[in-house]
């Protein structure tokens, strides 16, 4: 879109793996030292990481803004709400997770045919449009979805028929989240992402060297959707409650904002972004409840104007390289 952007994606080296390991060690140990409420915040942060990674992939590789992550989170959440809440079919994670995965892959692929038809502004607004369509459907189909009241009383999940405690759910979320981080790091270092970067760089040339542009774009969109679909299930179990607000476009925009806070020039971006956003949300809504939207909106706007998409990790990187130069 714009060649002025001189953004390069780093490659996954040994340092990235070590960082991932340290991060995992910290989140494994941390619950023993913090309160239950803080643990739920941590859990939310962990669950946000995969969705933010979806936005990150589309942004850093394809330069597209993906406002539609809330679609898939909503799908995963409502599947859980129906199966484990309203109709009490099953609360088995090993059934619900694959189910949500399949549904979000299918929906993402089909939506991708329309949404990925054009990129840039059109892709972004179609993302917003789809979330709003889902929102209105869920909101109005009151008899099935409970409308604005949502669905509460979702049973606690069980894993291989063993009921999970709150702590158990936390560690399950941790495993899923770290697993997805590892998978995504592999994806980011594969030939797939190399070719996506080529598509973002020059679409015509990419096509002329035999890259199936449309299909690869759709696949990237599907990967992002699958990430969000899985976390949707776990988010629903974490809150025991689902409401149409998961389909709001503002909710989808939050993931883009997290990615921007974290920055897209480093692999640590999504992790930093997810935790950064959730902590910001927590502190602002505790101290200035009314100002939450204004503060977060202005923060993102100022970040974009000043450092672009580099975010916190980008700033830290620049600082480090300056120190090293001295």
């Amino acid at each position: 879109m714009n060649t002025a952007l001189s953004m390069t994606v780093p490659s996954v080296g040994r340092r990235t793996w070590i960082t991932t390991l340290i991060f995992t060690a910290i989140v494994v140990v941390l619950p023993f030292f913090i309160s239950g409420y803080q643990r739920t915040l941590l859990q939310k942060g962990l669950l946000w990481i995969p969705s933010v990674f979806g936005v990150y992939i589309l942004y850093s590789l394809l330069r597209q803004v993906h406002f539609g992550q809330s679609i898939f989170i909503g799908l995963g959440s409502y599947i859980t709400a129906f199966m484990a809440g309203k109709y009490s079919v099953t609360n088995e994670l090993m059934i619900l997770l694959p189910l949500a995965l399949v549904v979000s892959i299918v929906v993402a692929y089909v939506l991708g045919i329309f949404i990925m038809k054009r990129t840039g502004f059109y892709f972004a607004v179609m993302g917003i449009a789809v979330t709003m369509v889902f929102w209105s459907l869920v909101y109005k189909a009151r008899t099935i979805t409970g409308g604005s009241d949502g669905i509460s009383h979702i049973k606690n999940p069980s894993l291989f028929t063993v009921p999970l405690s709150d702590m158990g759910l936390y560690y399950f979320c941790l495993i899923v989240s770290v697993g997805i981080i590892v998978l995504m790091l592999r994806v980011l270092n594969s030939s797939f992402s190399l070719q996506l970067r080529a598509i973002a760089g020059d679409l015509e040339k990419a096509e002329s060297i035999g890259i199936p542009v449309k299909r690869m774009q759709r696949l990237a969109f599907t990967i992002a959707g699958a990430n969000a679909g899985i976390t949707g299930v776990l988010l629903a179990f974490s809150y025991n409650y689902v409401s149409p607000s998961v389909f709001e476009w503002g909710y989808g925009a939050n993931f883009v904002q997290s990615a921007i806070i974290g920055g897209v020039t480093s692999f640590a971006g999504p992790v930093v972004g997810a935790f950064g956003f959730i902590n910001l949300e927590f502190f602002i809504s505790t101290w200035f409840a009314n100002l939450w939207e204004i503060i977060i909106g202005l923060t993102i706007a100022i970040i974009v104007v000043t450092v672009g998409e580099k975010g916190v990790t980008g700033i830290v990187q620049t600082l480090f390289s300056k120190i090293r130069c001295k």
């Binding site: 879109m1 714009n2 002025a4 952007l5 942004y59 330069r63 597209q64 803004v65 406002f67 840039g120 502004f121 972004a124 503002g250 925009a253 883009v256 904002q257 921007i260 009314n290 100002l291 939450w292 939207e293 204004i294 977060i296 909106g297 202005l298 923060t299 993102i300 706007a301 974009v304 104007v305 672009g308 998409e309």
Partner: peptide
């Protein structure tokens, strides 16, 4: 704002500011 991508993200965040002001 220099690129379309930046404009979309920044102005969509501004929408939050607007609706925050309305809410107050």
């Amino acid at each position: 704002l220099k690129t379309d991508v930046h404009r979309m993200i920044a102005t969509s965040s501004l929408l939050m500011v607007f609706s925050g002001i309305i809410k107050i």
